[in-house]
Simulated scan of single mutants.
Amino acid sequence: MLKYTMKKFMLMIPMLLLISALVFFALDLTPLDPVSYIISPDAAANAANVEALRDKYGLNDPTIVRYVHWIGDILHGDFGYSIVSGTAISKIIATRLPATLELSVFALILSTMIGITIGICSAIWQNSWVDYLGRFLAVVGQSIPQFFFGICMIQIFAIKMGWFPTRGRMSPGAEGFWSRLPHLVLPVLTLTISMCAVLMRYARNSMLDVLNRDYIKTARSKGIPEWKVYLKHGFRNALKPVLVVLCFRLPMLIGGSVVIENVFSWPGIGSIITSSVNSGDYPVIMVTTLMVAVAILCASFLVDVLNAFLDPRVRLEK
């Protein structure tokens, strides 16, 4: 198991280098010019001013030279500075990441609890009203985009009823978690609706597959209580594909939900990615994209390790 884990971990290094190169060279081909966003139109008329700024930020160097410098700085813990604001990217991430983690963790926990519960209940009471309701909710959650749910939440619960604030993470002058809680409700519920849909379907299909296995019939023939058959023999064995889905949700803890953060003006990583793309802030785009890529690779690594742990045949394959 240790050899298999180390092998998968070592494979992540060339993949990270390849992804970082693709991100860097792809952004270099875009027509966005960050200099145009940090200089006034009057100063932009002076070509000398533009060239001075490009030399200052190294934008006139060959692409391969800029990539080597950038990846070297990343390895030394220097993420660079935002071209637009001049702020250290590490400071931007340290400011924005807690907001994204707060939103994503609550949505992940809530959607996991609700999605798995409804999916398992749908499988146990197949073709009942519980099953039909769960399948209907899963289809609705997957077919309707997140921003529509967000807009509906704002219109109903914020504007019409006035129960919750419409935007931001915290009211002016407020401090502490309890003052942030009303701002969390709507974006967390919006994310939960979309995330629940996939989990419901995976949990239901996996549980139905397990309930048709011979060992479930054997357990019932031994007179084991039905609830014990479902929980001990069914639920535990049905978790494998559900855990895979959950592991691939982990990158959301870093990248956040770009759509939801913009709908609710949530000051997280997702909103900074959007503003950086609009302004052509290359250093911020590259660092945040690389962070998301690292999170995805870590999730893939975790899935491989879990599969090998749950099924020894995986790690014994040549």
Rank of each mutant, 00 (worst) to 15 (best):
164 F>I: 07
109 I>D: 06
61 D>Y: 06
56 K>N: 09
169 R>M: 15
110 L>D: 00
61 D>I: 13
136 F>R: 02
106 F>W: 14
108 L>E: 04
142 Q>Y: 05
119 G>M: 09
138 A>R: 03
141 G>S: 11
145 P>Y: 13
60 N>D: 08
99 A>W: 01
66 R>V: 03
134 G>V: 02
123 A>W: 10
136 F>E: 00
132 Y>H: 14
60 N>W: 11
122 S>T: 09
106 F>H: 00
117 T>V: 12
101 L>T: 03
150 G>D: 09
133 L>E: 08
111 S>D: 07
85 S>T: 13
158 A>S: 15
113 M>V: 15
147 F>Q: 04
117 T>N: 14
91 K>R: 09
163 W>D: 06
148 F>G: 09
100 T>G: 08
55 D>P: 01
165 P>E: 04
138 A>Q: 01
107 A>C: 11
79 F>R: 09
69 H>W: 01
128 S>D: 14
142 Q>F: 14
134 G>Q: 04
81 Y>A: 03
64 I>W: 14
98 P>D: 10
95 T>W: 12
70 W>E: 01
90 S>P: 03
140 V>N: 01
102 E>D: 08
105 V>D: 02
113 M>F: 15
159 I>K: 04
103 L>E: 06
115 G>E: 02
149 F>R: 01
106 F>A: 13
73 D>Y: 14
100 T>A: 06
114 I>L: 12
67 Y>I: 00
59 L>Q: 02
62 P>A: 07
69 H>S: 08
113 M>S: 12
58 G>M: 05
169 R>L: 15
59 L>Y: 13
124 I>S: 03
166 T>P: 10
52 A>E: 12
68 V>W: 15
82 S>M: 01
75 L>F: 15
94 A>R: 13
156 I>H: 11
167 R>S: 15
131 D>G: 06
70 W>N: 02
120 I>P: 04
86 G>W: 13
128 S>E: 08
151 I>K: 08
100 T>E: 02
114 I>T: 05
114 I>S: 03
147 F>K: 00
104 S>P: 10
69 H>Y: 11
148 F>W: 15
74 I>E: 05
117 T>C: 07
149 F>N: 00
155 Q>E: 04
75 L>Q: 08
101 L>D: 04
108 L>S: 09
95 T>S: 12
52 A>P: 04
94 A>P: 03
94 A>E: 04
75 L>Y: 08
140 V>S: 05
148 F>D: 02
161 M>G: 03
61 D>M: 06
74 I>L: 13
132 Y>K: 12
170 M>W: 12
162 G>A: 08
73 D>T: 09
160 K>P: 02
157 F>A: 12
154 I>M: 09
115 G>L: 08
127 N>C: 13
61 D>R: 12
76 H>R: 15
84 V>M: 06
105 V>C: 04
96 R>C: 03
93 I>V: 14
145 P>E: 10
127 N>L: 08
139 V>W: 12
68 V>I: 14
139 V>I: 15
102 E>Y: 13
58 G>R: 00
119 G>Y: 00
71 I>K: 01
89 I>Q: 00
70 W>V: 03
54 R>I: 01
154 I>Q: 02
122 S>I: 06
90 S>H: 03
102 E>P: 06
96 R>L: 07
141 G>L: 04
94 A>L: 14
112 T>D: 07
77 G>L: 05
78 D>Y: 11
56 K>P: 00
143 S>D: 04
71 I>C: 04
73 D>V: 10
